[in-house]
C-alpha cells in the first residue's frame, strides 16, 4: 500500500492505496466519480480523459500514485455555479453526442485543446480529437460543437442556438 494525496474537482483526498490502482479506477470506484468512462485497455479510445494539472490525460494509462500532488478535473467538475461549460452547452446544442459514452472524454480533451488553440480550423479540431474515439456520431457534430464552443469562448458571448430548433 502507498500514500496518495491529490485534489479532485477542488476537493483534497488522501488515501492508502494499492500502487497498481489506475487513476481511472480510483476516480470511478473509490471516489464514485463515474462520469469518466473506460472504453479500451490500450490507451486508444480516450473515454477516460481527465485534466491532470490542466492537461488532458488518459486516466487509464496512469497510476493513481502518479497523480499524487496533482489537481485533477473530471467532467463532474466542469460545470461552474450551475452553468454548463461552453463545451457542454455546445455539445448539447449541436447534437454532439448520441450514446454519451465517449462524451466526457471528448469534452475534457476539447477543454485542454481550446486553451492552446482558441481559434481552431476544422482540420485542427479533427487532429486534436484523434485520441478520442466516438462510434455513434461520425464526429460531424462533435467537430461542429467544438467549433461553436470555440467561437463562443473567444467572443465570450452567449451561444447561439442553431437555427430551426424549438
Amino acid at each position: 500500500m502507498a500514500q496518495l494525496k491529490l485534489t479532485v474537482n477542488g476537493v483534497i483526498y488522501e488515501a492508502d492505496i494499492d500502487p497498481r490502482l489506475l487513476l481511472v479506477h480510483y476516480l470511478r470506484d473509490t471516489l464514485g466519480l463515474t462520469g469518466t468512462n473506460v472504453g479500451c485497455d490500450t490507451s486508444q479510445c480516450g473515454a477516460c480523459t481527465v485534466l491532470v494539472d490542466g492537461l488532458a490525460v488518459k486516466s487509464c494509462t496512469m497510476l493513481a500514485l502518479q497523480a499524487s500532488g496533482s489537481k485533477i478535473t473530471t467532467i463532474e467538475g466542469l460545470k461552474q455555479d450551475g452553468v454548463y461549460h461552453p463545451l457542454q452547452q455546445a455539445f448539447w446544442d449541436n447534437h454532439g453526442l448520441q450514446c454519451g459514452y465517449c462524451t466526457s472524454g471528448m469534452i475534457m480533451t476539447a477543454v485542454d485543446f481550446l486553451k492552446h488553440n482558441p481559434h481552431p480550423t476544422e482540420a485542427e479540431i479533427r487532429h486534436a480529437i484523434e485520441g478520442n474515439i466516438c462510434r455513434c456520431t461520425g464526429y460531424h457534430n462533435i467537430v461542429k460543437a467544438i467549433k461553436a464552443a470555440a467561437t463562443q469562448m473567444a467572443d465570450n458571448r452567449p451561444l447561439q442556438r442553431p437555427q430551426g430548433q424549438v
Binding site: L33, T34, G35, T36, T74, I75, E76, L78, K79, Y84, Q88, F91, W92, D93, H95, L97, G100, T103, S104, I107, P162, G164, Q165, V166
Partner: peptide, 13 residues
C-alpha cells in the same frame, strides 16, 4: 428539431 432531453445527464458525467 428538439434538443435531446437525455443530454444534460450525459454531458455532465
Amino acid at each position: 428539431t428538439v434538443k435531446r432531453r437525455e443530454d444534460p445527464r450525459l454531458i455532465t458525467g
